[in-house]
């Protein structure tokens, strides 16, 4: 039941980068492959997840003192399902063409491991403001991942972005098929890991060459 001692900004950054849902935790990979074949789908999926994650964290944090720990899982499920229904219905009403393509996956947000995990490990133990910050960070992290993946997949697979043709010629059709989704996620994950290792090495090298200043804590 440890309260977090991180600042809100640190919580947001944590969700965006160091605990990024797709590239770091490797959870919720199903939508990352299924809906990222165009930038538009990826964008709407990301926005929906930001909304659901933030609102779920907010609500769970609000009622955290009233939840009986024995039935917390059904309660989380109901909270998540409520917000997912909300976004599902509004998308069906206001963004019909997109909804036709990714509607099924919007409903599947109910079963997202990432949303459930944040309610379980964070929101139920923390105050409202940090919980909202955490939800926002996680949501934005997911959103960024979706944007990056769908950017490359649509550009390479259709030679277009947001439905507008950019490159003419014969695009790499495989990138918009499910197999290409695995390629894209795997290669991007590898790339980000590589960048991470490089940054850590550079930091270590800088620490070694720097005069020995005792840094504690």
């Amino acid at each position: 039941m440890a309260h977090t001692d991180k600042s809100n900004w640190e919580l947001i950054k944590n969700g965006m980068f160091s605990e990024n849902t797709i590239f770091r935790m490797a959870i919720s990979l199903c939508p990352s492959i299924a809906v990222t074949n165009s930038l538009k789908n990826g964008f709407f999926m990301g926005v929906s997840v930001i909304f659901v994650q933030t609102m779920v964290n907010l609500t769970v944090s609000l009622i955290r003192n009233f939840i009986n720990p024995k039935i917390r899982i059904p309660i989380f499920m109901m909270v998540i399902a409520g917000y997912v229904s909300l976004i599902d219905m509004s998308m069906a009403a206001f963004a019909r063409p997109v909804y036709k393509q990714i509607g099924l996956y919007i409903q599947l947000i109910v079963a997202f491991a990432s949303i459930f995990a944040r309610a379980e490990v964070f929101a139920v133990k923390n105050k409202i403001i940090p919980s909202v910050a955490d939800g926002l960070g996680m949501g934005i992290g997911f959103f960024l991942a979706m944007i990056v993946i769908s950017f490359f997949r649509e550009l390479l697979g259709k030679g277009a972005l947001w439905g507008l043709p950019i490159v003419s010629g014969n695009p790499l059709l495989i990138m918009v098929l499910p197999a290409g989704g695995f390629f894209a996620v795997g290669l991007l994950m590898g790339f980000f890991n590589w960048v991470d290792i490089r940054l850590a090495e550079r930091k270590a090298a800088a620490a070694e060459t720097a005069p020995s200043v005792e840094t504690t804590g």
Binding site: L172, L173, I174, L177
Partner: peptide, 10 residues
């Protein structure tokens, strides 16, 4: 396989 799926016509 990658090529055949990517550029089936060519």
């Amino acid at each position: 396989a990658f090529l055949l799926i990517s550029w089936p016509k060519l």
